[in-house]
Design a protein around this nucleic acid. Structure first.
Lengths: 191, 191, 191, 191
DNA sequence: TATGAATGAGCCTTCATTCAT
DNA sequence: AATGAATGAAGGCTCATTCAT
């Protein structure tokens, strides 16, 4: 019984990500998601109270996944630069590998830009990252005058854009030459 | 016969940008846009053949505007760095000043990421910029191994993100300290 | 001025018959009729008060035309059989030659079957025919016990159906062998 | 789960026939049919994929019914004339008894006159009848030179028209004097 | 007179959600 | 728990008609 439920929930999750990211939230009908998951539309309401709640739950989960993906392999003992370089590569690979999920997540963030509650919840995903920033500022490897937001902008915004170009086919991963690209970003946040 | 009211067209444009950028394309109803513009829903169809065509027309116009805004004040005689710095500030100011328009434009680009025709049309907006890149590589002020896409990513992606944080209230324009921020971006694309 | 008006009215008439008979009354938009006639939709309202009135006017005119076509070449002096034979052929040729008009007329009659006022108006088209029936009953060439309706049914209903089959391509005019076909109908109304 | 209510389907069928036959296909709105059936408009789409499909489905069923009604009580052993006389009466009674259904069926046939596919499908309803024609030609009771279409025109077209006049109130069933009327039709197809 | 602009009303259809089994 | 049936609300769009020139 329990196993079956979990499987269904997972199937539902995957189907929702797939459909939402393909057609947008408003463009995706519960019926389509249900069909994709091999369920009846009514069954979805056993697991989620509403379409919006499903979407919110999805995004929450996506945030967790992305956050975890970025910090994968990062250890306490690493130097700040080494750790950030690792998250940088992780992010690029996550976007390239799970583009649908990433786009869905980003779409959500852009859409709710002005909603402070949602924004605050979003911050949680970056605590690990921000901790690295704190350490970097403390040990002199990062410019102390740059805020978390500024650091993230300088370090990671180019990564996101490069990754998107890889997905869009305008660049290949080799052309992106990750270490050099990271080095350039790093240069822009040095003290 | 009654004559087409130019004011009406403009009201419609503004209303559509506002509503589309707030709720997304699928999430925006013709009725809502009409209400926002103070028109009857049917009247919209005097100006646009369909909702999709309206959206496409809007985005085309927005692209023109953004492109023009970025190149405002840029002269042939300027040094590459000076010119790019100007476009950089222009972009930040455009995003901050016309955030709805920018968001709508970006929404379109993200959504049609994989549509090559749409992508090609999008490139047209950046020819002025890419010409500057060419000159910069030629005169040694830009790293010659960086492609147009890479240059844009390193130089402008942080600008976009910083501007968004200003709009979102996480940063003020002063905190963003534009010249320093630009200098950091510039550093990341130096040879 | 006058000439121009008449031409427009005629163009409008022809366009309306064409469009109505092709798409049905409800399926035909004023805009389409206007386009077909090379006019603006608004101009139609100079000539007709409403779509329904236009349709009614059309049907009236069509009734007149069909009535005149049926009686074409019929003379007072003719024997009843000769006269009816003539109207019989005339009817077949009218349906085959002006099928669109005929269908439109018939459609109207079927649709308003229960409307007595409309039905009464329709009777007017047949006064010439019914006069022939009266003479035929009087001179013994037609069965006196058959009412106008019955006579029309036995004599003309087969003609209509045969004509339709010619139009539909299931019969050619030769196969229909008009004189024999009429003779058979005639046989069925003999005393 | 809730189970499909067979009563509902029937109510829908009757309502659709009623409304379609009164206002035509284009003139009938889904909302009106739903109201007539005591359902929500959306419920109609549980039973039919679209308005057009509903109409086609209806007509198919109507054709089956009319066909069955005409051949009711006809036996292999009957003489051709006896069998045809029976179908003749059956047809008149069907039209008088189920006028709405008949009108709708006819409406469809007239409207799709030129569509061969639809026409072919329509022929299926008459195979039983045409088989009687074949036998009649073979045993010398019907004029051998008359095609199926011609026979049907001479025999049945008057029946249809008489029945319509009964429905319209211009004739009563007695006035129509069925046996005499049939005898007249029969006379017109004799060899 | 003639007409493009404008619109209220309505249409077909979809959809998120609830119901009943 | 699971689901097909049912539906109120809404959506995009069309259209007959009127307006204003």
């Amino acid at each position: 019984m329990r196993v079956k439920d979990e499987k269904k929930r997972e199937r539902l999750f995957d189907a929702a990500v797939k459909v939402f990211s393909r057609y947008g939230v408003e463009g995706s009908s519960i019926a389509r998601i249900a069909r994709e998951a091999g369920l009846s539309p009514a069954t979805i309401y056993v697991y989620f109270a509403s379409k919006d709640e499903m979407f919110e739950g999805l995004v929450l989960e996506l945030g967790r996944r992305m956050s975890a993906a970025m910090l994968d392999g990062v250890e306490e003992a690493m130097a700040v630069r080494e750790a950030l370089e690792r998250t940088w590569y992780n992010l690029v690979r996550y976007i390239v590998g799970e583009f649908e999920q990433y786009l869905l997540f980003e779409l959500h963030r852009e859409t709710r830009f002005f909603d402070p509650e949602s924004y605050g919840r979003g911050r949680a995903y970056y605590t690990g990252l921000f901790e690295l920033f704190r350490r970097g500022r403390a040990d002199g490897s990062l410019a102390p005058e740059l805020s978390d937001y500024a650091l993230r902008a300088h370090l990671f915004a180019p990564a996101v854009r490069l990754a998107k170009h890889v997905v869009g086919g305008q660049l290949t991963l080799e052309e992106a030459r990750l270490p050099d690209a990271f080095a350039r970003c790093w240069r822009s946040v040095a003290p």
